[in-house]
Simulated assay, not measured.
Amino acid sequence: MAKILKIYPDNPQQNLIAEVVKSLNNGGIIIYPSDTVYALGCNIFDIRAMEKLAQIKKIKLDKAHFSIICNDLSHLSNFTKPIDTSIFRFLKTHIPGPFTFILEANKSLPLAYKGKKTVGIRVPDHIIPQMIVEKLGHPIASTSIKDDDEVIEYSTDPELIAEKYDSLVDIVIDCGYGDNVASTIVDLTSGEPEILRQGKGEM
């Protein structure tokens, strides 16, 4: 049964953030708010947690394209091939924000990402995931929560989300209603920004 933690962005309680981080370190799956939609997340270095995340999404882990959530660009070189100055400047002007940037992956990716040629990097403009990543000491893997409804693409009510995922996750962070527009996906692998999916982020 998932534990619901009410954490609000105007004054996030450090002890509750610490509880979330402890769960991630113990292989837990969390549901957290972002500057776009609510998302599922886990420790990128915990292969069992990554497999569980894939099971929740009803896909095989080797077919999954989970984003890597960072709190700044400092972890970029851990996961991506060297990027040129113009792309780095471009990233700096759009981070943090509602974007997922596709970059060429390097060979130092965590085990669950092995064999991936590209990786999606995201730095949400939201204090709660930023604090979680900072306290954890490294990024988390993430995937958006989709809704089964054919009209509503993303779930926005954390109470309904908690009901649906109650037996599947360890912690649900209730931060009030979320957005229903996902991030804009931008491919930077060619050296020029190419929008693959227009979402909340405007360029």
Rank of each mutant, 00 (worst) to 15 (best):
H94C: 09
F99P: 06
Y32S: 13
T80D: 06
E159V: 15
I44M: 14
S142H: 03
T93E: 14
T36G: 09
P82D: 10
Y113V: 05
G137E: 06
V123L: 05
A162E: 10
A105Q: 13
L40F: 15
L160G: 07
S167V: 04
H75G: 02
P139R: 04
F99Y: 15
P96Y: 11
A112Y: 07
F79Y: 15
I152E: 11
P124K: 05
F99Q: 07
E153S: 12
I128Y: 02
S144T: 15
K107I: 12
F90W: 14
P124C: 12
K146A: 11
V151C: 05
R48D: 15
Y165L: 01
F90A: 02
K92G: 02
A54H: 01
I29G: 03
F101Y: 10
E150R: 12
H75K: 07
P139F: 07
R48T: 11
K57I: 08
S108F: 14
K57F: 06
H94M: 09
V133G: 08
V37D: 02
K146H: 09
I47P: 02
P82T: 10
E134L: 11
I95T: 15
E51R: 07
T143K: 03
D35K: 06
A49Q: 00
D84V: 02
I95F: 12
L160C: 03
K135Q: 15
C42T: 09
I121A: 04
K164P: 02
T143P: 11
H94V: 10
T156H: 05
Y113S: 01
K60V: 05
K146W: 00
N78R: 13
K57A: 01
F45N: 15
T118C: 03
I161C: 11
Y113A: 06
Q55E: 15
R89I: 09
I69W: 11
L91C: 05
F66N: 00
A39S: 15
K60C: 05
L111E: 14
Y38H: 04
E134M: 08
I132E: 05
I152Y: 11
A64D: 00
P139G: 06
A64F: 03
S142Q: 10
F79W: 14
E51H: 03
T93M: 09
K60I: 03
N106A: 10
T100C: 11
L109G: 01
I128A: 06
Y113N: 08
P110N: 03
T156L: 01
F88P: 00
A105C: 03
A141N: 06
I47C: 00
L73Y: 10
D72R: 10
L168G: 00
P129W: 01
A112G: 11
A105M: 10
E104R: 13
K58G: 06
F101P: 04
R122C: 13
E104Y: 14
K146S: 09
K92P: 01
A141L: 09
I30R: 02
I44H: 07
